[in-house]
């Protein structure tokens, strides 16, 4: 039962790293607790080893959001409410602030953290597709070393990452984009309020003179783990934006997804819909850039 679980509240990050060195294998790091507490209650197998919860949400050093050296740094414990409201993120990384605002309810956004969303790595984690298209780099610390790793390399499979038991995800670094990008975070749920994504997409497009300079797209909830769809991205570059290309890209998206997932129970619905909505997003982004 959850009441038998021990609780550790480190005074600093250093203290936590030492603690993890000694007890890491039975420790789960907790911040907002919005995935862990329901998971423990429902006896989720991914938490069955947990004997101690190490709370990090009070560590102020993990909450900062700032821009320096052309990079945005987001601390692991930044909540989605903070991210949604943050002016820097709104300006430079609008897809991320949009996704943050669509996660759960106000009560959840006030507690849930960006690192929690990433580490939990649910297929429907809404912050992941925007982070992927923004080329997010993950900052990891342990008693052994500090290192950074591109987000896409961290995500292993649903509900699993490559983080070791003695490692802590301390934050993300996102390079500020050059000018001329437009983008959209798209989320489809079963209802309008507080919904789990059935399909999500993050799309960034940089146009010049009607042709595509840079193109980035990441999937959510339609692949087991959110991924960048590099085949489509490369195909799109240097081609002329327009409905013909967008239809081709959408069809390719359908083909890429089916390659990854095979036929699943939800495929007959999701596959046509994701192509259609991807096309709609691209048309909208193109129209916006034409009208300025």
């Amino acid at each position: 039962m959850i009441q038998d679980i021990d609780f550790y509240r480190p005074g600093s990050l250093e203290e936590l790293l030492t603690f993890l060195k000694d007890h890491g294998s039975n420790v789960k790091i907790i911040a907002g607790g919005t995935d862990i507490v329901p998971g423990l209650r429902q006896k989720a197998s991914r938490f069955s080893h947990v004997k101690t919860l190490a709370d990090i949400q009070h560590l102020h050093e993990l909450k900062t959001i700032e821009i320096s050296d052309g990079h945005l740094s987001i601390g692991s414990c930044a909540t989605f409410s903070q991210i949604e409201a943050n002016a820097l993120i709104r300006k430079h990384f609008p897809l991320l602030s949009c996704a943050a605002g669509l996660i759960g309810s106000t009560q959840i956004r006030n507690r849930a953290t960006i690192a929690g969303n990433v580490v939990n790595n649910a297929p429907c984690a809404d912050s992941v597709p925007p982070l992927l298209v923004y080329d997010a780099i993950v900052c990891v610390r342990s008693h052994r070393e500090d290192y950074t790793v591109p987000l896409n390399e961290l995500l292993l499979k649903p509900y699993q990452t490559r983080l070791n038991a003695d490692e802590v995800l301390t934050g993300f670094r996102l390079p500020v984009l050059a000018d001329g990008y437009r983008g959209e975070f798209y989320k489809l749920g079963r209802r309008r309020g507080v919904s789990i994504s059935r399909i999500s997409l993050a799309v960034l497009m940089q146009l010049q003179g009607g042709s595509i300079q840079d193109f980035r797209v990441a999937s959510g909830a339609i692949t087991p783990v959110s991924v960048r769809l590099s085949g489509i991205e490369e195909y799109a570059r240097d081609r002329k934006a327009g409905s013909e290309l967008f239809a081709q890209l959408a069809q390719q998206l359908g083909n890429e997804i089916i390659k990854i997932t095979g036929m699943r129970w939800s495929t007959p619905y999701k596959l046509p819909v994701v192509q259609q909505m991807f096309y709609q997003i691209l048309m909208k982004l193109n129209d916006e850039s034409v009208t300025g």
Binding site: F7, R9, I30, G32, G33, T34, V37, P38, L53, D55, Q57, H58, S81, T106, Q107, I108, N110, R111
Partner: peptide, 21 residues
Amino acid sequence: TVLLNGQAVASCLLLAGQLEG
């Protein structure tokens, strides 16, 4: 729902150890 430092949160997801201060 209760207020944690003025913000609405779900009290079923908050654990005692997280309440300090």
